[in-house]
Design a protein around this nucleic acid. Structure first.
Length: 681
DNA sequence: ACGGGTGCGACA
DNA sequence: TTGTCGCAC
């Protein structure tokens, strides 16, 4: 829930741009013969014709709706064209849509102001600067002609009965001399957005709709308004835009059902209705801020009070790239997974896709992700508490397909044991597994920019991506996890798995303690054979007493604590990226170089001298940190080649693995360090 | 026991 | 911080 900061006179110009039925448009661009035909994009064709995920306007007017099955759609609209979502590795592959989305964002929309990619097919734009300078230099009233596209805009509260008349009144509204300044800015916004949308159409062949207002909430809403109006009027033209004059807003909104408001489409909206009898925005207006706060807490209460009044201080984040990548699949009903090996198979597929996307993110955007998370959903058919949530688990992310696969599987097993409880799976007499996995996903988050100019980083990853995808043999496998005593079924299944063979001396043993309630229990106690300094510590782990558990917990905390004062690789990147030269933002043609970190600097003080001074200081020390302050384990977060790159850059004279930076235990034993690829290959 | 696959942000 | 939950397209 966005926290609304009260904004008294909000004279920003914010646009919400929505690529409507985007997947359909992407497919129609690929197959132009589908243009103009009722079309839907469908995935997983095998069951009842698959599920519709995007529906063209022609098909909608036949009564086809999203979340129909393909067969229903055929029944409703026999001539409908069904296009399947691409499938890769046995799962839906949305990459074509993702890249089509960034095509739009990157090449066009990012030009005229701050741009936030809200989803695969939506962006917010902050056009305040552009609108203000237009108002200053060439206000609409001074123009002899207004763009034809802009004249097609919907202006809420203006009836649009007849064509030419309507355009005239739109022109009048845009050019009104006596208008409120805020309305004038919106008028400029109309013209700017119309231009942008034309450009998008020209360069990508995609059409889009837009809402223009003084804040995000409203621009979103107006975009939705337009789409509703579009459906109601039976219009078949998907591309238009909506704006609302300041004075007319409140009246129009008060009749709006609250469930239509963003964030209120779910439980909160339902609660407003059933608990407080609030059905419309007008109803919501009757409630005092404190009353709302009593029911929904201080933040949500204030937020509700504000949005009812059209107040939303939420800023457009200057972010063109996603903050995380995920790859997942559901296994509904009878298809639920019931064996570890099956789970591992799918985790391998998902991890492959994830790695592929991480690689291209690195290649195209020079970003690196640092956390891997596993989510799963499950049920237990027999047990009493079969609704228990399957826990999510995360760990540091190591680059490399095999590594992600291995880590994902380890995370899964850790989560599974937690899910099944401290006593593990049923004793051997019952051979049947009690759990069923109905969904799996792996995701990568905490993505940071890496500096450009360190070209060998790119070379490294390019070579990685050319390796044939799945084969674990393409990667030198440094260690494999072995779970000696976790549970009958686990070890049983495990042996059935085809884990890559490797030289024996490289094998790393992972000891697990079944009653250790810690997500790192598999991975945090890896003992590397040659790391002699850790042997004392590691010896404690195989035992299973409660006191040992506490000891382990403390050790883990200690090792984390040790890292706490240290700059992580993330910090280093951040500081580097704050330097001005990394910030320049040129729109390249094909190889897009995006700096997503524009928003990292507080936008309100973006140009303050204070910040600039800070940046200057950082530049003096290049990386912002002295060599000696950087812990060895920081480097261990990266693949060897990249470690080498940084090492030569940061401390040219030191040999790999030579020094722990500070006192205490070997840093290679920290919870982060040992989990990554060992330095030597 | 399903719209599926993703992604975001808030909360504890 | 991690993990959970809700929301949206």
């Amino acid at each position: 829930m966005p926290v609304a900061r009260p904004e008294t006179s909000d004279a920003r110009v914010i646009a919400h741009v929505d690529m409507d039925c985007f997947y359909v448009q992407v497919e129609q661009r690929k197959q132009p013969e589908l243009r103009g035909l009722p079309t839907a994009v469908v995935q997983y064709n095998e069951w009842q014709g698959g599920a519709l995920i995007a529906v063209s306007y022609e098909a909608r007017s036949c009564g086809v709706k999203r979340s129909m099955r393909g067969e229903e759609a055929k029944a409703a609209c026999p001539e409908i064209q069904l296009v399947q979502v691409p499938v890769a590795r046995g799962k839906a592959d949305l990459n074509t849509y993702r890249s089509a989305g960034s095509e739009v964002v990157v090449s066009i929309l990012a030009q005229s102001g701050k741009c936030e990619r809200a989803s695969i097919d939506e962006v917010y734009l902050d056009l305040t600067d552009a609108a203000e300078s237009m108002l200053a230099d060439a206000p609409p009233e001074s123009l002899e002609s207004i763009d034809e596209e802009a004249l097609k805009s919907h202006i809420l509260g203006m009836s649009r009965e007849d064509g030419d008349d309507f355009k005239e009144s739109v022109r009048d509204w845009i050019c009104r001399k006596d208008a409120d300044r805020r309305d004038k800015l919106l008028g400029c916004g109309i013209i700017i957005v119309a231009e942008l949308r034309k450009q998008v159409l020209k360069e990508t062949e995609f059409s889009c709709s837009a809402g223009i207002a003084h804040n995000k909430a409203r621009s979103y809403l107006f975009c939705m308004f337009f789409m509703l109006a579009k459906l109601a009027s039976g219009m078949n033209k998907p591309a238009q835009q909506t704006v609302v004059p300041y004075a007319a807003v409140q009246e129009l909104l008060s009749s709006l059902p609250i469930k239509k408001m963003k964030q209120l489409g779910g439980k909160l909206g339902t609660s407003l209705q059933t608990d407080l009898g609030i059905d419309t925005v007008g109803d919501l207006l009757q409630f005092s801020e404190t009353k709302l706060q009593e029911h929904y807490g201080i933040n949500t209460g204030t937020w509700l009070w504000n949005i009812a009044r059209g107040i939303s201080g939420e800023e457009v984040q200057g972010r063109l790239l996603p903050k995380s990548h995920g790859s997942g699949k559901t296994f509904p009903g009878p298809r639920a997974l019931r064996s570890l090996s099956n789970v591992q198979h799918w985790l391998n597929q998902l991890s492959e896709e994830l790695y592929e996307r991480l690689s291209s993110d690195l290649e195209q955007n020079k970003r690196i992700a640092s956390t891997l998370t596993l989510h799963a959903s499950a049920f237990r058919s027999k047990d009493s508490d079969s609704h228990k949530k399957f826990p999510s688990k995360s760990c540091p992310l190591r680059y490399g397909v095999a590594k992600i696969q291995e880590d994902a599987f380890n995370l899964f097993q850790a989560a599974l044991r937690e899910y099944m409880g401290p006593f593990g799976p049923k004793p051997q007499g019952n051979k049947k597994e009690t759990w069923r996995i109905t969904g799996l996903s792996v995701s990568a988050s905490k993505i940071v920019d890496i500096p450009s100019g360190t070209s060998s980083i790119m070379r490294y990853f390019q070579s990685q991506t050319t390796i044939p995808s799945c084969s674990a043999s393409g990667f030198p496998q440094e260690h494999v996890a072995v779970t000696p005593s976790a549970s009958e079924s686990c070890s049983e299944q495990k042996s059935a798995e085809t884990l890559p063979a490797m030289p024996e001396e490289d094998i790393t043993v992972t000891y697990t303690s079944p009653d250790l309630d810690n997500s790192y229990r598999d991975i945090d106690i890896v003992l590397e054979k040659d790391a002699s300094c850790q042997s004392n510590e590691a010896k404690e782990f195989p035992t299973q007493s409660g006191t040992q558990t506490k000891t382990i917990g403390r050790k883990i905390n200690n090792s984390k604590e040790k890292n706490r004062g240290m700059p992580s690789i993330v910090d280093i990147f951040k500081n580097y990226n704050a330097s001005p030269q990394a910030k320049e933002e040129t729109q390249e043609d094909s190889t897009v170089s995006l700096t997503s970190n524009r928003g990292n600097l507080s936008s309100s003080t973006n140009h303050s001298s204070e910040v600039n001074q800070e940046v200057e200081d950082r530049r003096d020390t290049e990386w912002g940190y002295k060599v000696g302050e950087i812990d060895q384990s920081v480097f261990d977060e990266l693949p060897y080649e990249i470690q080498r790159e940084f090492r030569s850059f940061l401390r040219p004279n030191k040999r790999p693995n030579s020094g722990k930076s500070k006192s205490g235990d070997g840093s290679a034993s920290s919870s982060i360090a040992h989990y990554f690829q060992p330095l030597k290959r």
